[in-house]
Write a protein that binds this DNA or RNA. Structure first.
Lengths: 246, 246
DNA sequence: GGACCGCATTGATACAGGTCAACACGCACT
DNA sequence: AGTGCGTGTTGACCTGTATCAATGCGGTCC
């Protein structure tokens, strides 16, 4: 089982792990191996800036970051939360369209942009993996549009918590919980507000309101306990069945 | 020049035109040719429904449609405007995540889903073209998130008009205008409101306000004349340079 | 012509969320 | 213990947008 050996040998890098190991020939694996480099950044690092050149295509191995755009007068909107297996940059674009800031210590698996473009062209499995990842990000961005465009502040916060739980479960490879969960938010109230198109005050008030109604528990230090996950899901206004669509 | 002959022979279908003709071998072209079928639908047709099976992967040849999600209580958010070269469906997903409704008469180039999945796997150029299209849609979805999350009603309407002009220019293969433009909106005020996360009344009021300030002209019948496109751009709050990033 | 209908506009009022301001809490540093 | 600072919470008030309601306007059908 050659594929398995490879899988375990490169589990840190989502690109290599998911796109290449299982499906690719040895040659491309070797090229990929030579091309990639790991790099770790402390929390708070600006990993990319809007309008600035972006020399690498990078994939998240560990840690989390926000991807955001700032308007002229300082209003900021976060358009995506980047976590394990998400990526920064895109083939064919030399300039970042967004600011990317590390929320925690972040480890990236990086490829020099030109090299990666060649790899995508030459290696069908990498292109296929890129396509799947991009389609998933597209779904996430559209979900966010629904939240931003049509939900109330309360629903936004509930939807955010629900999506965080689902996201963290996905990364852990665990099942999405049906009843009780406890986890730690990687974002400050400020950063949550920027993600939900709210102010920090409104965000804080909604957390408090949900707590007072027993939908969540806030033991302190950005921890959240959700006693009944299903019930919280109902607060988002979505007529969602809860299951993935694939 | 074989490629050119092919290009002119299949100009109606973006998938075939852009992804295959220029880059693919004859075999895959032949398969694609056999697999595709054109179909035209009248304005108002529901082309897909959230939660319903979607048997085809389709690409827009002509016409426009909205892609939207409805919440339990009837609130609707449009997450994308589909126009020539955009697509409905995704490889690997049998159920539509959104409602798609034709705004005008629409011609689609359709592939049976399974067939298309095979084609994507087998034909690198199709996968590459899909990836580019998906990355573009991802950018569009994130732009929308910025608009929905952080712009005022006035800015939203201005940004919508600006993006419509850019979009229409792209489809025509024309330059984005720097001064005067006139065009016809393919959306009703209602549909614009659902796209911008506003009510129809607020949307109408902002159109009126922009008209009163001479930023736009409304000759009637969904036509819009913009006397100074650059000036309108300034109303969106974006510190955009106006140029594409690629 | 008149009645109707879908779409757009305009006005009056209500309210969700923004703004401004004070205060609380935890934590590092001295 | 005391100070300072970053982060979060809460309160009072204000404003932009939603809501409710009326009117206009261009079609089309009888």
């Amino acid at each position: 089982m050659v594929a398995q050996t490879r899988t375990s040998a490169c589990s840190e890098c989502p690109i290599r792990h998911r796109a290449v190991c299982a499906e690719c020939g040895t040659d491309d694996l070797a090229v990929l191996e030579m091309a990639k480099s790991y790099k770790t950044y402390p929390a708070g690092t600006r990993l990319a800036s809007e309008g600035q050149p972006l020399m690498h295509f990078s994939s998240f191995v560990a840690g989390a970051a926000t991807m955001s755009r700032m308007l002229e007068d300082g209003r900021r909107q976060t358009v995506g939360l980047l976590m394990a297996s998400d990526f920064i940059g895109r083939p064919g674009r030399a300039v970042s369209a967004y600011d990317v800031e590390a929320l925690s210590e972040v480890t990236l698996c990086r490829f020099e942009r030109r090299t990666f473009e060649t790899l995508v062209k030459r290696t069908p499995a990498i292109a296929a993996r890129m396509l799947t990842m991009t389609l998933d990000e597209l779904d996430a961005a559209r979900e966010l549009a629904v939240i931003l465009g049509r939900m109330t502040a309360r629903e936004k916060v509930a939807a955010f918590l629900v999506s965080m739980v689902r996201r963290l479960a996905l990364i852990d490879g665990a099942e999405v919980p049906t009843d009780e969960v406890t986890f730690k938010l990687p974002l400050s109230r400020d950063q949550i507000a920027d993600h939900l198109g709210l102010t920090i005050e409104t965000t804080s008030r909604q957390f408090t309101a949900l707590r007072k109604e027993g939908l969540i528990d806030l033991p302190g230090g950005r921890s959240v306990r959700i006693p009944d996950f299903q019930r919280l899901t109902l607060e988002t206004g979505e007529d969602d069945d809860g299951g993935p669509l694939d």
